[in-house]
């Protein structure tokens, strides 16, 4: 296994229990791994194997039941909810399967939203958001609302939103799950380019082998455990 760069993410014996009836449901049963800066990782596994749970923990949206998580050398369990929010705002970008755009806001306002929580002024927000929208090829559509855009376009708006604060890591949970194969390919090409040219660390969950093939490392989950963690050759873009 080749792990370029220093470890950005380091988890040891990570466990997550969900209350289920009288007992608990162990969604993660001790996951230990590290991901270095600049890696492109695909996480695979059957439905219910704990992939989303793991992503939510890595994305600081949720806290583990047991085990430790260091992000960039920092023990995440020691951070307050405000500090976690700041981390999500500045270091982390999310791309979801269902896009998760605010339906009443224009593409531009959706993309500018993280900058508002970063305290950026109104004009700077609009300028930066417009620039990122142009990068994802939607400069002309900035005043459309999500409902006026196709699924692929919506996902590009969501990617622009994830990118606007220049995060070091992007977590994408089945980003192509709602897209056709052609659009999926465009999105994945864009992700590869981001990873290659800007060194953004990418962790993405997918069910599809051809999507996972874009990554250089593949981790497979089963029943809350890592059962496979292999390096793979990058698909030529």
């Amino acid at each position: 296994m080749t792990h370029p760069g220093k470890p950005l993410i380091e988890v040891v014996n990570l466990e997550k229990d969900y209350p289920a009836g009288a007992g608990v449901l162990q969604a993660l049963r001790g996951v230990s791994l590290s991901i270095a800066e600049g890696e492109f990782v695909a996480i695979m596994g059957a439905s219910g194997s704990g992939k989303s749970t793991f992503m939510n923990l890595l994305g600081c949206l949720d806290r583990p039941t047991r085990g430790s998580y260091h992000l960039d050398g920092q023990d995440v369990s020691r951070l307050s909810s405000d500090q976690l929010a700041a981390l999500r705002n500045r270091e982390i970008g999310f791309v979801f399967q269902g896009f998760n755009l605010l339906p009443k806001l224009s593409a531009l306002d959706n993309v500018a939203l993280p900058l508002m929580y970063a305290g950026t002024g109104r004009e700077a927000r609009r300028r930066q958001a417009q620039a990122v929208l142009e990068r994802v090829g939607l400069g002309e559509r900035s005043h459309h609302t999500p409902l006026q855009l196709s699924g692929g376009q919506q996902q590009r708006v969501a990617i622009a939103r994830a990118l606007v604060t220049h995060p070091r890591i992007i977590f994408a949970d089945e980003p192509t799950g709602n897209l056709d194969s052609e659009t999926s390919r465009q999105v994945m090409d864009f992700f590869s380019q981001l990873n290659r040219e800007e060194g953004i660390t990418l962790v993405l969950v997918t069910h599809e082998a051809d999507i996972a093939a874009y990554a250089r490392r593949r981790i497979r989950f089963q029943d809350g455990r890592v059962v496979e963690d292999v390096a793979q050759a990058e698909v030529a873009a």
Partner: peptide, 15 residues
């Protein structure tokens, strides 16, 4: 859901 999205992209509780 909107609140969840805002939190995911960095809104603090007080925001």
């Amino acid at each position: 859901r909107e609140i969840g999205i805002r939190m995911a992209i960095g809104a603090r509780r007080r925001d």
